[in-house]
Amino acid sequence: MKKTETRSVLLVGVGGQGTILASKILTTGLIAAGYDVKMSEVHGMSQRGGSVSTQVRYGSKVYSPIIGKGEADVLVSFETMEALRYLDGLKPGGKIVVNDYQMPSLPVLSGEKEYPDGIIDELKSKGPTLALDAAKVAKENGNPRGMNVVLLGALIQFLGITNVDWPAALKANVKPQFVEGNLRCLDAGMKLAKEIA
């Protein structure tokens, strides 16, 4: 990475999925690695169930805490359809990490609309896409609630920022009893991204 370049990560999902914790671990690691970091959160009006997004920007000197359309280097979506909702935030040619995990929204739940098919194919046609079933991976690693950390692991690998002490960053943000399970998830996410990419 060039000294002056600022990189932008857009993390999106549904309220309650743990996007905030993932962003916290990400920013802790980036700060420890000596980057200037800014982070911006946007919440849906409802506490639960709304669409949420977090923006993390890092570089030698970061100005704007937010980005507009077409500016994210990487889009990480914790829910399948949300990836598409925020796709216009991604730079043409930018990378996508998408969780193969569907949370139907109210119009789908009520039977008024159908949860769309073919989202991951649509994403793949738009840019380098890593689709993974993070819920399954988290379960396999004995930590069903660690879906967010699996995705974080994949993101880190995807961004190529592996020169950071990520386990330390994780420990700084997670209660001691959850550290071990989450470390396994982080590792699994990174490995998976390495294999697929």
């Binding site: 849906g44 409802s46 169930g49 216009d88 738009k126």
Partner: peptide
């Protein structure tokens, strides 16, 4: 600024709810 165009029919609203 160029942004990626995509099939918007594949996105269903996620309105806030009680």
């Amino acid at each position: 600024v160029e942004s990626i165009e995509y099939n918007e029919n594949l996105v269903v609203d996620r309105p806030p709810a009680l």
